[in-house]
Write a protein that binds this DNA or RNA. Structure first.
Length: 557
RNA sequence: GGCCCCGUGGUGUAGCGGUUAGCAUAAGAGACUCUGGAUCUCUUAGCGCCAGUUCGAAUCUGGCCGGGGCUGCCA
């Protein structure tokens, strides 16, 4: 199965294939997704989620959802809930395997005692500044702590007192005894435990010492018998330490594998910046559709399938890359095109009156729901003497390449009639209304005489249209890499026009039946979804992404 | 100055000693179309550099150049 053509062949799967061949780990494949519950998930996490859960699926293995909650100061329950929601929404199943690093605190403590007893760990009384100073620099080796050679008995006693709360925050730490002149800074007697008299979202006040990432993470993986511990590139230099702890303890040793995290153009992905954008109200909350958060993408109308497809298609490697956000949008369009129904909505309405149509007649037209899906069927859409069409679909003095409606010109109203514009009613420079006629022989959209029109436009009955607020989103930043300009704050590049609200949109009434997060296409305009702000009085619609638009290129060239 | 990682079309990836260097996307041209959408066809475009090993190198070796990371009691 693992060798099947349909699966991608990245370097991680290559390692797994080799391990399977040599029957390493009894041919088990067991991964994990280990978020810290200190923020909301974003599309970068989605890449990791798809990788870890995807690999487990492909190899008939398992993937755990594990909260790496070793720092009570930053972490909280609300994030745990949010992460669980998001991973589930993306379409992955951890079955009963939802774990917390904090559940392993007692075991970690015991392992620390093992290390102390073997002379490989010691309690250090230096403060944070001293430790930092004595660690040296990348070019200068560090200095041994004056407390480095305490007796095992003293270390045991002190460590126990640390745990019992005899010391204040920062007064002591437990350190691994490795090598203060190691060329890898991580190996210069790294801190294993710090004292934090802080309330933990799960263990409450049970602990006042908390394990550091490097000490904890390998233990978590080992305890869960993870076979392949996949993380991002910045942990490459931590791998020797990861291995060192497990080897000293002589316990199960997973293999840490590092890959390049996802970067997307025109956005930021760091938790710190995302938090700042939210807290300082540059956006409206964690689920703002302009944000690359999972919640933002959900509200924007991105489907889980399209995000999964995107993550699969960008591949996984060790080169730092910056993926064009257009590619994400391409994946979204491709998925939505095939799966989502079409409706008609006029975003910027222009009234037209059909002179040769009965005043009171409202006739139902048969309109195709989705030309990409033969099973989607048709629906009835009311047609009447007065209609709204899109302002963009009319030009009084058409430019050369424009072939929509213009005075004297004929176009087709989708699934309705051929329409000809006769007069333009203006107030000053502004076009207020068009008077038109239809060819009654073209009902349904085709002419029996076989004549063609250049263009087909959408429409909504004036009497039957419903009003809606439509929110249009543009990229949040004005440059591809907002964090890449040295000396400049990423906030300097925030796009002040990233949100446009259209309040006077005229929508086909069937859209009012849709529920929040339902996705659809407004014919010829783009993909949209119902915003959760929708209520009985107000219909709110988000633009997910525009359709590809050749005309705008022609127009602007 | 130390240590670690990485260099294949514009972008993202495949390649595992012999391939017309594949795929996707972007760009350009055309066909088709009741969405200037979708679909289809074609075109442009790539192995960082220099040596070495070999009958043969994107692939193996060395050097160079370029990019990224590492000096939290964060993860």
């Amino acid at each position: 199965m693992a060798n099947d053509e349909k699966y991608s062949h990245d370097f991680i799967r290559e390692i797994i294939n080799k391990d399977l061949k040599t029957k390493k780990n009894d041919s088990r494949v067991h991964t994990r997704f280990p978020p810290e519950p200190n923020g909301h998930l974003h599309v970068g996490h989605a890449k990791s989620i798809c990788l870890n859960f995807g690999i487990a699926e492909e190899y008939n293995g398992k993937c755990n959802l594990r909260f790496d909650d070793t720092n009570p100061i930053k972490e909280g329950d609300e994030y745990v809930k949010s992460i669980i929601d998001d991973v589930g929404w993306l379409g992955f199943d951890w079955e009963d395997r939802i774990y917390y690093a904090s559940d392993y605190f007692p075991q970690m403590y015991n392992y620390a005692i093992v290390l102390i007893k073997s002379g490989k760990a010691y309690v250090d009384d230096q403060n944070a500044n001293e430790i930092s100073y004595n660690r040296g620099t990348v070019n200068k080796s560090g200095k041994n702590s004056p407390y480095r050679d305490r007796s095992i008995e003293e270390n045991l006693e002190l460590f126990e007192l640390m745990k019992k709360g005899y010391f204040k925050d920062g007064e002591k730490v437990l350190r691994a005894k490795i090598d203060m002149s190691h060329p890898n800074m991580n190996m210069r007697d790294p801190v294993m435990y710090r004292i934090l008299h802080a309330y933990h979202h799960r263990t409450k006040d049970e602990w006042c010492i908390y394990p550091m990432y490097d000490w904890a993470h390998g233990l978590e993986d080992s305890i869960e018998k993870i076979t392949h511990s996949i993380c991002t590139l910045e942990f490459e230099n931590h791998r020797p330490l990861y291995d060192w702890f497990l080897k000293e303890l002589k316990i199960f040793q997973p293999q840490q594998i590092e890959f390049a995290r996802l970067n997307l153009t025109y956005t930021v992905m760091s938790k710190r910046m995302l938090l700042e954008l939210v807290n300082k109200n540059y956006v409206n909350g964690w689920d703002d559709p302009r944000l690359p958060t999972i919640k933002g993408m959900k509200r924007r109308g991105y489907s889980p399938a399209s995000i999964r497809d995107f993550c699969r298609r960008i591949g996984v490697a060790k080169v730092n890359s910056n993926i064009p956000v257009d590619f994400l949008e391409h994946c979204v369009r491709e998925n939505l095109n095939k799966t989502v129904p079409r409706f008609m909505g006029v975003l910027r309405p222009l009234k037209i009156t059909i002179e040769n149509y009965p005043n009171d007649l409202i006739d139902d037209m048969n309109v195709i729901n989705n030309p990409e899906d033969a099973n989607a069927g048709i629906r009835k859409v009311p047609f009447s003497k007065s209609l709204y069409i899109e302002q963009d679909d009319f030009m009084e003095y058409p430019s050369k390449k424009f072939y929509r409606l213009a005075p004297g010109r004929e176009v087709r109203l989708v699934n309705a009639y051929f329409l000809k514009c006769n007069d333009v009613i203006k107030e000053g420079e502004i076009t207020k209304e068009l008077t038109c006629t239809i060819d009654h022989n073209t009902k349904g959209g085709n002419s029996p005489d076989g004549r063609k029109v250049k263009s087909t436009i959408h429409w909504v009955s004036l009497q039957k249209a419903i009003d809606a607020e439509v929110r249009l989103y543009d990229r949040l930043f004005t440059i591809e890499n907002p964090t890449g300009k040295k000396g400049q704050d990423y906030k300097d590049f925030i796009n002040s026009n990233s949100l446009k609200i259209l309040k006077n949109c005229k929508i086909e009434s069937a859209v009012s039946e849709l529920k929040p997060f339902d996705r659809f296409q407004f014919l010829r305009k783009g993909y949209f979804c119902i915003d959760p702000d929708k209520n009985d009085k107000k219909l709110v619609i988000n633009q997910t992404v525009e359709l590809r638009d050749k005309w705008s290129k022609i127009k602007n060239n």
